[in-house]
Design a protein around this nucleic acid. Sequence first.
DNA 1: CAGTGTGAAGCGCTTCACAGCT
DNA 2: AGCTGTGAAGCGCTTCACACTG
Lengths: 219, 219
Amino acid sequence: MPWQFDIPEATVQRLSTYLTILRRLEGQGMPTVASSDIAHLANVNAAQVRKDLSYFGDFGRRGLGYRVPELREHLQRILGLSEGRNVIVIGAGNLGSALVGYPGFEPRGFHVVGIFDSDPAKSGSKLYGHEIFPMDRLAELVPRIGAEIAIIAVPGPAAQSVANDLVAVGIACILNLAPVHVNIPAGVACRRVDMTGQLEVLSFCLSSFSSAPEGEQVQ
Amino acid sequence: MPWQFDIPEATVQRLSTYLTILRRLEGQGMPTVASSDIAHLANVNAAQVRKDLSYFGDFGRRGLGYRVPELREHLQRILGLSEGRNVIVIGAGNLGSALVGYPGFEPRGFHVVGIFDSDPAKSGSKLYGHEIFPMDRLAELVPRIGAEIAIIAVPGPAAQSVANDLVAVGIACILNLAPVHVNIPAGVACRRVDMTGQLEVLSFCLSSFSSAPEGEQVQ
DNA sequence: CAGTGTGAAGCGCTTCACAGCT
DNA sequence: AGCTGTGAAGCGCTTCACACTG
């Protein structure tokens, strides 16, 4: 996951959480907020909030806290969201369709600007007003529509091949929803969201291993 | 996230990854596998794989590695997946619908056994063969259908209230897909999957902060 | 005073390195 | 020789504590 300076990945993830919180506070008309308030809403330590923010500047005023709209704007800029981001979705199956119709992306600045599917039968048909393109038009269309981020929403076995295609046409940021790790060259950022994997962690919480008294079960 | 013994959360997450890998290897007929092979496929250190597994027992044979079907079974048991898990989905909107139709759950042992939605207009209609129930039947139906895990697939503002309802009817494991942190009492496990948050991390990779804070390109 | 910014301590995960089986 | 299991070292994130400031 390539960024050059000494900023923990966990910090960047929390920044995204803080941004969501600040948007809500701003909507409620709150003028300022203390690190301890943000911390409470994000379920982290207050010093953590301050340290996270201090990587990027001195945004607070001592004795007062942070001005909500100001900090919200800073976070947006830090995360590169000031002008929104163009996203393409690969895979127009069940998952891909849901993504394209998901109303949560636009308000947070992500615009779906293209859908691709390897199935020629799907080409030309529309999904929530977006045309589905065949995979072999990727190289032609990615620069034209200004795609910056690609979401892989294909079945596991196809994910690596799709990732290769994306890298080949110059995509540098990939969100992988398939339940497999894909290899990508250095310089390309790839993150994976594995819902089923999270369900498996929850299943572990239910299993005897997470609660059974000492020594039982382990052979 | 409540489990009593000293097992890192990251370890449990990786176990889920290993299980996926082992299923693939088993499908390919591979009889044994070395920690270094698993490590390569999961993109982690080989010692990490061995240490993760050693929390739960001595599954390997020195000089040989791990027997694939045997280890796969162990992992399934550790994760509490031997008999599958019953899941309910709260929210029959865009996201909820996609989940119910998502073909990736069943093969990994998660059975959708109920869909709930607060909108009375949706009650009674069907989604991929599953009836949609009104929220006020939660208390009655959860024990009857044996629901163990709930997925919150409602908009952010409704998430906390839904979480409260789930806890009230005895659900102890929650997967939260809403982009907000929800407060839950100790003893209840709650995990969040925030796709938009991951997109924001990727956006950070594209932003000037990740590559050139002072206008300098370091490479 | 209230609350930020931050060096330093704390802590837990990751990696190393090697003893010990097969 | 090949590979596991594991104590110990390494390392980086988190938390503490406090100087400092409006």
